[in-house]
Nucleic acid binder design. Structure first.
Length: 421
RNA sequence: GGAGAGGUGGCAGAGCGGCUGAAUGCAACGGUUUGCUAAAUCGUCGUAGUGCUAAUAGCGCUACCGGGGGUUCGAAUCCCCCCCUCUCCGCCA
């Protein structure tokens, strides 16, 4: 959410910044609502002041056994008017809020302006793209032949997009999650969180998924609960409506969770194997920081995600997303993509977004220092999502005989050096 | 799912129609004093909206005692609904 005062004072600037994100906002309507809210609010507050004053007089008169019926009469009609105004005011406030919640975050000034994902900029890369002296296969062929994946049975249970891992596939999945959590906890100083996977509407609103992305989330009507699309949602909202102590910042959490996404509107795109799923596992890093440290810490977090891939010795590249490719809530974002030789493409395994105070304002997460109250900055990044990581491991570590070598750092977790048929 | 108790400022905890934005204690901040890893003492000490103003400084007004309604000239205080926490019972991994 943007600050209404900032909108009031910089309407044109906001319109321009949002336009670079291909967003369109009716700033005029918002400013109009804001003006009406302030005018009616002032008027009503003055009426309430009068009521408070006169009520004091009534109290005094009654104590002195004097007649106060004239004043009481007056106040009866005044109170009726106040009630009418309050109702009107609530309606204005509600509409204003609804509109404010639909305004995307403004991109950071350093974000390259672009029209599509084609305008994202590669800012670094790591590792060598491997070459093979045999015909490479893609992850689905390999995993199915090794009994690691059973997508047919997954679909029998829940439909396509709900993968069923079996045998070494299931064990590899579990090993990856443990490896990543341990890395972030032991080497990067994060505190582990294991959150609920179902959350209230206001929680999903706090991080920016609602109201705009409602169609992309699974919803349980009976209980009014949403399945989380990422651990970011519950973990960020842990501190909703809290005042944090500045001495405790930055707060760094890492959480494993299953993630549920309806992927409405993306049918048929990148669907082979594990590329795009309705349910997947992810290790997510979330930080709450002082605004002054925001971008420095965010860069470190990207390094934490990269470290996972370096330890696994997988080639990757880092992209700075252009304005058009930024998500609703993000001010700035870098994606990390892994090379998948069997599929012959780069696969996004981590998205590291800085939201500045956008989420903090929505979720009301503040900190206090000598100068007063401020909103924290929040940012997060996958560290990382498992399905595409699994694809990259299988495809990069595949052998001519159809087996897969296990990356060094996973061998102790898996108890083997090679996965064979 | 059933029964009971309770939700008050950073925390603990009074208040139970007007003199309460809220006692008291702790914590925090500032000063004094003594001095050694502390105590004593004085003062300050909620958040948000809004108006005036050059002002994130100051002053004023309004709102907020889990959330939403109601009664009343006036509600933290009375009434109704909902949510949450705790205890007991039931069910259950």
């Amino acid at each position: 959410m943007l600050d209404i005062k900032y909108i009031r004072e910089n309407p044109e600037k906001i319109r321009e910044r949002i336009a670079t994100k291909n967003g369109d906002v009716d700033i005029t309507a918002i400013i109009d609502l804001d003006t009406r809210r302030r005018n009616l609010g002032k008027k009503t507050d003055d009426m309430k002041h009068r009521r408070n004053t006169v009520s004091q007089q009534i109290s005094l008169k009654k104590r002195n056994k004097e007649d106060a019926s004239a004043e009481i009469n007056d106040m009866q009609s005044l109170s009726a008017n106040i009630k009418e105004n309050d109702i009107a005011l609530t309606a204005i406030q509600d509409e204003l809020n609804t509109r404010l919640l639909l305004i995307p975050n403004c991109p950071h000034p350093d974000v390259p302006v672009g029209n599509s994902e084609a305008d994202n900029i590669e800012i670094s890369s790591w590792g060598q793209i491997p070459s093979f002296d045999f015909k490479v296969k893609d992850h689905l062929d390999i995993a199915e032949s090794l009994g690691m994946l059973d997508l047919k049975r997954g679909a029998k249970l829940s439909g396509s997009g709900f993968p069923l891992y079996a045998g070494w596939g299931a064990r590899l999945e579990r090993a990856l999650i443990n490896f990543m959590l341990d890395l972030h906890i032991n080497e990067h100083g994060y505190t582990e969180i294991f959150p609920p996977f179902l959350v209230h509407s206001d929680v999903a609103t706090g991080t920016g998924q609602l109201p705009k992305m409602a169609d992309d989330m699974y919803y349980l009507k009976e209980d009014d609960l949403w399945l989380i699309p990422t651990a970011e949602v519950p973990v960020t909202n842990m501190h909703r409506d809290e005042v944090l102590s500045s001495a405790n910042l930055p707060i760094k959490y890492v959480a494993f969770s299953a993630c549920f996404r309806r992927e409405a509107g993306s049918y048929g795109k990148d669907t082979r194997g594990l590329q795009r799923l309705h349910q997947f596992n992810k290790v997510e890093m979330v930080q709450f920081v002082h605004p002054d440290q925001s971008y420095a810490q965010w860069e470190l977090l990207i390094g934490h995600a990269e470290k996972v891939l370096q330890e696994l010795k997988l080639p990757y590249r880092v992209l700075e997303l252009c304005t058009a490719d930024l998500s609703f809530a993000a001010a700035r974002c870098r994606d990390i993509e892994l090379w998948a030789p069997g599929s012959q493409k780069w696969l996004e395994v981590s998205s590291c977004s800085n939201f500045e105070d956008f989420q903090a304002r929505r979720a009301n997460i503040r900190f206090k220092d000598e100068k007063g109250m401020h909103y924290v900055h929040t940012f997060n990044g996958s560290g990382v999502a498992t399905p595409r990581l699994l694809i990259a491991i299988i495809e990069n570590y595949q052998q001519a005989d159809g087996s897969i070598l296990v990356p060094d750092v996973l061998q102790s977790y898996l108890g083997t050096t090679q996965i064979k048929g």
